[in-house]
C-alpha cells in the first residue's frame, strides 16, 4: 500500500526532472548484497552498480524510497533473486515504469529447492515467504553462484557487445574464486563428524546443506517472522542435547538470543553463521566482502561440527 503511494509520488517527481543522458556506462541496479558484489566484479569499470537494500535492512520488510524509484527509472539493468524474496519489487518496477529496463532474475533456470525441503520436519513449523514455491537463498550454493555469474556476463554482453570480452574474462576470474571457495568448503567440512547445523535463526542454509551433505535444523521456518512455539524450541533443545551439538548458530538479523538460550540448555556454545544477504553498517564501512563472510562461515562450521 505505502510502496504504491511512494511509487506514484516518485513517478510525479521523475516526470519533473530531465532524464539523465545514458552515457557510456551501463547503469545496473541490484537488490541484495551478493548480487551487487558479483555484478561489480563482472562489470569492472564498464558499469555503475548500485545496491537497493541499504546496510542493516531486511530484504523481506524493506520499503523502497522515492530515490530508489528514480534510480531504477534511470537504470539499464535490474538484477534480482526473484520468486518472492523481494515482494516489493513488482510495485517498484511499476513505479519506475522504464520500458528500456532489462530485468534478470538470478534464480531463473536454477535447480531450486522447494520452499519446505531442506529443513528438518522436527524444527520446521512456519510457512514460507508469501506466494513462494521455492527456497530463495540460492547464493549460498557456490555452484549455483557460478551459473548466476555466467548469466550476468551474458546479459551485460548483450547490452554492451563491445565490452563482451572483458565481461567474460572477469566472469571467469570470479568463477575461479567461487570454485576455490567451494573446494575449501569440501575439504574443510570433510573431516567434521557433525552433520547438523542447529540454527537459532531461519532456514537460510538449505542450499549450503544440500551441497555439502549437511542438515539444517532451524528454530524459525523459511522466514524469521513467525515466532517459534514452546514445543519446537523444546524439541530442538532435546535434539541438541541428544546429539551433543557443540555449537548453536545464529544470524545477525534475528540476533543471538534464542541461540544462546538453546546453547545454555544443551551445554553448547554459539557462533555467527551469516546468510550473506546483507551487511551491517559497520561491516559495510570495513569493506567486508561476500567471500570474507563465507570464509568466516566455514570457520564457524568447522568449529561447530567438530566433536566437543
Amino acid at each position: 500500500m505505502s510502496s504504491h503511494w511512494i511509487a506514484v509520488f516518485a513517478l510525479a517527481l521523475a516526470a519533473g526532472t530531465p532524464s539523465l543522458p545514458a552515457g557510456p556506462k551501463l547503469v545496473v541496479v541490484t537488490t541484495i548484497f551478493p548480487l551487487a558484489e558479483f555484478a561489480r566484479a563482472v562489470a569492472g569499470e564498464a558499469a555503475e552498480v548500485t545496491l537497493l537494500i541499504p546496510p542493516g535492512a531486511d530484504v523481506h520488510t524493506w520499503q523502497p524510497r522515492v530515490g530508489d524509484v528514480r534510480r531504477l527509472a534511470s537504470a539499464d539493468l535490474l538484477i534480482s533473486i526473484g520468486g518472492g524474496l523481494e515482494p516489493w519489487l513488482p510495485g517498484l518496477m511499476r513505479g519506475a515504469g522504464s520500458p528500456r529496463l532489462k530485468h534478470l532474475e538470478a534464480s531463473a533456470g536454477l535447480a531450486l529447492l522447494p520452499a519446505h525441503e531442506g529443513h528438518d520436519k522436527e524444527g520446521d513449523e512456519a510457512e514460507g515467504h508469501a506466494g513462494e514455491a521455492f527456497d530463495p537463498h540460492v547464493w549460498l550454493d557456490f555452484g549455483l553462484d557460478q551459473i548466476i555469474v555466467d548469466a550476468l556476463a551474458r546479459t551485460m554482453s548483450a547490452l554492451v557487445p563491445a565490452e563482451a570480452p572483458g565481461f567474460s574474462r572477469r566472469a571467469e576470474a570470479l568463477k575461479e574464486r567461487l570454485r576455490t571457495l567451494d573446494a575449501a568448503y569440501r575439504d574443510g567440512l570433510r573431516g567434521c563428524a557433525g552433520r547438523e547445523i542447529i540454527l537459532g535463526g531461519h532456514a537460510a542454509f538449505g542450499y549450503l546443506a544440500r551441497r555439502y551433505g549437511l542438515i539444517q535444523v532451524p528454530v524459525y521456518g523459511a522466514s524469521p517472522d513467525a515466532a517459534p512455539t514452546p514445543k519446537t524450541t523444546a524439541a530442538i533443545v532435546a535434539r541438541a542435547r541428544r546429539d551433543h551439538a557443540r555449537t548453536i548458530f545464529y544470524e545477525p538479523g534475528v540476533g543471538d538470543k534464542i541461540a544462546r538460550l538453546i546453547a545454555a540448555e544443551a551445554g553448547a556454545d554459539v557462533r555467527l553463521l551469516h546468510p550473506g544477504h546483507n551487511l551491517t553498517p559497520a561491516q559495510k564501512a570495513a569493506g567486508t566482502t561476500f567471500f570474507r563472510l563465507m570464509e568466516d562461515n566455514l570457520e564457524a562450521l568447522r568449529h561447530g561440527l567438530s566433536p566437543r
Partner: peptide
C-alpha cells in the same frame, strides 16, 4: 528509522520481546 539508516532489523529486535527467549 529511515533517515538514520539503521533499519528495521535492530528496531524490531528492541520492540518485540519473546516470552520464550527470556534471559
Amino acid at each position: 528509522a529511515s533517515v538514520s539508516g539503521r533499519f528495521n532489523v535492530a528496531l524490531f529486535g528492541y520492540l518485540f520481546g519473546d516470552v520464550l527467549a527470556i534471559e
